[in-house]
């Protein structure tokens, strides 16, 4: 399965970095869409079929927490896989976001952290991602 991904972050630099990381990570990608705040992101969700949302918290117009609350309140998007990608360090706020079913990736992040989190929240298994692993002759020698 290849993912349609929406990246919502007010920093164009960070969106570029996340997209670059996604492309390097080997996560199967069908399309990548971008938005600069929560309100713009919600409009994107209306217009496009999205499988995975990568969402910042601190943004103007509408922040990530409010966008996530609206996503969970809408039956069309309530089951959407969401990864928060943020510098947010408040445990209170992070607990709220996790209670809304989001996984958290803290900036700055190594590419493999983002990849592993995406694979976890989307339910892609190691076998789906890496392909079947052939058994070695040693492993059969028992």
């Amino acid at each position: 399965m290849a993912f349609n991904i929406l990246v919502v972050d007010d920093s164009a630099v960070m969106r570029t970095m996340i997209v670059r990381t996604l492309k390097m990570s080997g996560v199967p990608i069908a399309s990548i869409h971008e938005a600069a705040n929560g309100e713009e992101g919600l409009r994107r969700l209306q217009d496009e079929w999205i499988d995975l949302l990568l969402l910042d918290v601190n943004m103007p117009v509408m922040n990530g927490e409010e966008m996530l609350q609206r996503i969970r309140a809408d039956e069309r998007t309530r089951d959407l896989a969401v990864v928060i990608v943020s510098t947010e360090g408040s445990e209170t706020r992070l607990a709220t976001l996790q209670s809304l079913g989001a996984a958290i990736v803290h900036k700055p992040f190594p590419p493999e952290t983002l990849r592993d989190t995406i694979l976890r929240v989307t339910g892609v298994t190691d076998a789906d991602y890496y392909g079947p692993v052939a058994a070695t002759s040693d492993s059969l020698d028992f």
């Binding site: 920093s11 164009a12 630099v13 510098t87 360090g89």
Partner: peptide, 16 residues
């Protein structure tokens, strides 16, 4: 913008 993002991430990590 890239240097600005460095500052943003330093700030976001240092404050907590």
């Amino acid at each position: 913008d890239a240097l600005g993002e460095v500052a943003n991430v330093v700030c976001g990590n240092a404050l907590p």
